[in-house]
Design a protein around this nucleic acid. Structure first.
Length: 227
DNA sequence: GACCAGGCACATC
DNA sequence: GATGTGCATGGT
């Protein structure tokens, strides 16, 4: 798919002190606490993070439901199932062949490094764990940070398409900057708190889905009044 | 039928 | 390092 930048972003300005906490409060007031991630276990969160790559969450939900229905949503079941069989189960999430391969890569990593035990993975320190995750084929920066934040409860801010679109449209940062630049911008301007990063990202998705799609029709976006 | 959705790896320049 | 391309379903 082509880049989602089908829109000209205005030149960014300097971030004001305490501006991002204020943005969060504005969103939180508009949408309420989001209670993310929509996953019951760390394993479900990780599977969801891989399945949602460039895909609408509604399609991911169908695949997750299908895995649950077949009692397949465990590391052990993923280790045993063949890649083509896994691909059939996750069909509705799209890109099913490549995602089945990516899930298998993650499972091999989980068993080789942590004997299949997610608790062991989650107790590892954030920075070395991030490096290890990024070395797994199919896990890029956004997926790694989703796993770190929502499964392992480490303070890593997740930068997704909505984050860049919203903040670039409101002139807070240049859209074309690298993933790491974006992450550091957010993390440097906010307290390093898991609960804050968790709900802030969820708020971004909430406002993004309603008011910040690829076509710039911002409607009644609560950030218009503030920014 | 066209466009879009909570990316990533890989090839090429 | 930037840019282009393949991967694929399901909702609007």
């Amino acid at each position: 798919m082509k880049s989602s930048k089908s829109f000209f972003y205005p030149k960014s300005r300097k971030l004001r002190p305490n501006e991002l906490p204020k943005v969060y409060r504005t969103l939180r007031q508009a949408f309420g606490h989001q209670h993310w991630w929509p996953g019951e276990t760390p394993f479900e969160v990780i599977v969801g993070a891989i399945l949602t790559q460039n895909t609408a969450w509604t399609n991911v939900e169908k695949a997750i439901m299908n895995l649950k229905k077949n009692e397949m949503l465990t590391p052990e079941a993923f280790r045993k199932i063949s890649e083509p069989a896994l691909a059939r189960l996750i069909r509705s999430a799209g890109y099913f062949n490549i995602k089945a391969s990516r899930l298998k890569h993650f499972i091999r990593f989980l068993y080789s490094e942590y004997e299949g035990d997610l608790d062991s993975l989650c107790v590892e320190k954030g920075d070395p764990l991030r490096q290890k995750l990024l070395a797994v084929k199919g896990i890029g920066p956004e997926t790694a940070d989703s796993i770190l934040l929502y499964a392992a409860q480490k303070p890593f801010f997740v930068i997704d398409a909505y984050t860049k679109r919203i903040f670039a449209r409101h002139r807070l940062f240049p859209y074309e900057r690298s993933y790491e630049s974006w992450r550091h911008l957010l993390q440097d301007a906010l307290p390093h708190k898991v609960s804050l990063y968790n709900d802030f990202h969820a708020q971004i998705v909430a406002v993004g889905k309603r008011f910040c799609r690829t076509k710039p029709d911002c409607g009644n976006c609560p950030l218009n009044r503030y920014l």
